[in-house]
Each structure stands twice: as structure tokens, then as C-alpha cells.
Design a protein around this nucleic acid. Structure first.
Length: 296
DNA sequence: ATAGCGACCTGAGTGC
DNA sequence: TGCACTCAGGTCGCTA
């Protein structure tokens, strides 16, 4: 489920509840997520203050006050929710409504906040997510971060960079953009959306967007801007839905965005002036949605 | 080196 | 109402 914009929205939603709080207790109900939880997870976390929440690609970073960082990946079905406790309650007095889906609540952060007490709960039905502990000063050496491409929101992603990475590559654009070493944080949905905005087919050979001298063709400039814009728009949409979403059920992690092509098989293409229909094809075992009329 | 595919796990949706 | 089947936003590791 969560691609970069969803993880960023989760980060922004959790920050007010977690930053500055102390992890009074870490309750581990299931250890067997995609990878086993760290052996010393509870001991290394309890009593520590959370100094800030960060993000790299689709990874949420919970920075503790002793140079350790909890790295959390939501996999396909992971989500967090915040349960606030009134300031007047005592530590042992939790009387919050039990989650309707408690059987998939795997990690519970019992927090002491400046205002009182709260719980932050990690829920993950499919258990494709995981959490690791890593020294913050050595985060660049965390194996999944080695070789990770630039953030699509940052300055390192530009058409010249993509030309260097895509030049000579015969792989279809769809696969190249899903490659986290090319751009970090794109997933199936936003690759489909970016290609639609750039009027490029997911089947197009990656190298065809690069000139013989290795520079970006105009279409690659458009693709670069489309990637940046689709991510920025999705983050903005998540941010604007954040407050309402928390108010309804306290959960963070999945927002029903409206997409232009994703999951719209058989519907009319939304490109102005295009009368095509959205198709679904399978590439490398994953669905690609695109309009064959305006995406070439 | 690159590309394709199954595996990991559970739940939601569909059609009979 | 139940059952069988398909599909899912991510990533890893194995093949050719």
C-alpha cells in the first residue's frame, strides 16, 4: 500500500504525538513480521526520548535520543494509529477502546508525552512490514539504504541524472522507475500516474529517452517533472486529508486518493482532448494502467 | 548485469 | 450463506 507520499503523510501525522515523548514501554505482541523484530528492541527503546521523526524513501525513521533510530517499513498493509490519553489519567489507567482489529496490532508504543499519555499502535495484517534498529550516525550503511536512488522531492533528481541511469537500458520504463536504485520511493501507483502525466507508455524502452550523446530528450524532461509533481501533489493531498482522517478513526497509512489512470481499467482517459480508454497490462507480474492513445 | 517470476501473508472482492 | 478463486500499493532471492 504505502508508497513515499503515504509514508510521508504517516510521518507528519505521527510527529505531533511522538516527537518529544518518552517510550515508557514497548509492547511486542508478534515478533514475526517480515523479519523478526530486533532482539533487544524493547530494552533498547524503553526510557528513550523520541527526538524527531524522519523518512527515507518508503522507510519511516524514529530517532531516539541516544543515536539509535527505529526504522519502520509498512510493507503492503502496515498502518499506525494514535490513541491519546487524557492528561489526568494515571500511567496504569489506560481505558481506551479496544481496537476493532486488535489481532493485527503487533507493536504498541506506550508513550509519556508532555501532556499526558498516549499509545501509538502498529497494525499490519499481512506482516510484510518490519522494524529494525540502527545507529543513526551509520544510517547510510543500513543495507536497504545502500544504493538507494535520490528522493523524488529533492534536488538530486533531475533529467541529467535520469539520462545517466536510463541511457542504454532496454528495460521498459515501468520497471526502471520501480527500481528503487533509480528513484527512491516510487511504487506501482505513482509510476503509472507519472507516466500518464508525461504521455509515455510503460512499455517504452528506457534508453529511448536519452540522446546518442547521453543527454535527456525533451520527453525525459517532461517525465522528470511529472515524477516530481505527482509525488508533491500526493503529499499535499495526504496532508489535507490528515486531520479529518485522524478524527474519524485515528489511523494513519492509507488515504483514498483519486488517481488518473491507476485502477481505472476500461474508463475514459482524462487527458484533455484524448478520447482513449485506460488499459491494464501485466509487466513483470504487476498491473500497469495506461492509455494507449496518448501514452507513446 | 539484467529481467522475469514465485514467495512471503492475509483480507477484500467477485461470481456461482 | 458459503465456497472457490483472484487480486493487492513491496521487496527479496532464485532462475535464465
Amino acid at each position: 500500500m504505502p508508497e513515499l507520499p503515504e509514508v510521508e503523510t504517516v510521518r507528519r501525522g505521527l510527529a505531533p504525538a511522538m516527537e518529544g515523548s518518552i517510550i515508557e514501554r514497548l509492547e511486542l505482541r508478534r515478533q514475526d513480521l517480515r523479519f523478526p523484530l530486533p532482539e533487544n528492541f524493547a530494552d533498547a527503546s524503553q526510557g528513550k526520548r523520541i527526538v524527531s521523526l524522519g523518512r527515507r524513501a518508503k522507510y519511516l525513521l524514529i530517532d531516539l535520543d541516544d543515536d539509535m533510530t527505529i526504522i519502520s517499513h509498512l510493507g503492503m498493509s502496515g498502518s499506525f494509529r494514535v490513541e491519546e490519553e487524557a492528561a489526568s489519567r494515571t500511567p496504569g489507567g489506560f481505558a481506551l477502546p479496544r481496537s476493532k482489529d486488535g489481532k493485527h496490532d503487533h507493536v504498541l508504543f506506550h508513550l509519556r508525552t508532555p501532556q499526558g499519555w498516549s499509545r501509538v499502535v502498529y497494525n499490519d495484517p499481512r506482516r510484510f512490514g518490519f522494524m529494525h534498529l540502527w545507529k543513526r550516525s551509520q544510517l547510510d550503511a543500513y543495507p536497504p539504504f545502500v544504493g538507494l536512488g535520490p528522493e523524488p522531492t529533492g534536488n538530486l533528481l533531475d533529467a541529467d541524472y535520469l539520462a545517466r541511469r536510463l541511457g542504454g537500458r532496454t528495460q521498459p520504463l515501468k520497471g526502471a522507475l520501480l527500481d528503487q536504485s533509480v528513484v527512491a520511493g516510487l511504487g506501482n501507483i505513482y509510476v503509472c500516474e507519472a507516466l500518464w502525466r508525461a504521455h509515455l507508455s510503460p512499455l517504452r524502452k528506457s534508453g529511448s529517452l536519452v540522446t546518442p550523446t547521453g543527454g535527456p530528450k525533451k520527453q525525459l524532461l517532461l517525465l522528470t517533472e511529472a515524477i516530481r509533481a505527482v509525488i508533491a501533489d500526493a503529499i499535499a493531498a495526504g496532508g489535507s486529508s490528515l486531520r479529518d482522517h485522524i478524527q474519524t478513526d485515528g489511523s494513519l497509512g492509507y488515504f483514498q486518493h483519486s488517481f488518473s489512470v491507476y485502477d481505472r481499467e476500461g474508463e475514459a482517459c482524462r487527458t484533455p482532448g484524448c478520447n482513449g480508454t485506460v488499459s491494464r497490462i501485466i509487466q513483470a507480474g504487476r498491473s500497469s494502467f495506461y492509455c494507449a492513445s496518448c501514452q507513446k
